[in-house]
């Protein structure tokens, strides 16, 4: 947990540096009292200052840190695969359209998480895909991505 917190602080300091550089590049205007760079610059400085103070606190042992691992030992792979499947789904939805990509995504994720009953997972994915299609397209009349197949 301690390492994770240190990494978070470093990332926040990097965000603060980015914010300071980008805010100071903004066009300076004083038409309405404060310039448009005031708030982002002030917040970047605040993020940086607080993160440095927090990092110092961690390194000096003044911050109470739970002695637990950041990830569950067997959960790390599961969450990574679930996330990558979701990234794949968002990529595929533009190419294959809503129906096919949703079916593929649901089937792949259910099979991965259940690790058995492939036939029932496929059948369930078909049912859920059409249920979601009915909700979004037929009930809410929302346009869905169409892709190569036109559906």
């Amino acid at each position: 947990m301690k390492k994770g917190l240190i990494v978070s602080c470093v990332m926040l300091i990097a965000l603060s540096v980015y914010g300071i550089i980008e805010s100071s590049r903004l066009e300076r205007t004083m038409q309405m009292g404060i310039g448009i760079e005031f708030l982002p610059l002030a917040m970047s400085l605040a993020i940086g200052g607080l993160s440095i103070a927090f990092l110092v606190g961690i390194l000096r042992g003044r911050v109470e840190i739970k002695d637990t691992p950041v990830f569950q030992p067997d959960g790390r792979i599961r969450i990574l695969v679930v996330f990558l499947l979701l990234v794949g789904y968002v990529f595929l939805i533009e190419v294959f359209g809503y129906v096919l990509s949703t079916f593929l995504y649901l089937a792949a994720t259910i099979i991965f998480l259940r690790r058995e009953r492939i036939v029932s997972a496929v059948l369930m994915s078909v049912g859920l895909t059409f249920l979601l299609f009915a909700i979004f397209r037929l009930w809410l009349k929302s346009p869905l991505p169409t892709g190569l197949l036109g559906i």
Partner: peptide, 10 residues
């Protein structure tokens, strides 16, 4: 899990 993620994305 996949159902909620799919509803959220769409």
């Amino acid at each position: 899990i996949p159902l909620i993620l799919s509803i959220s994305s769409v």
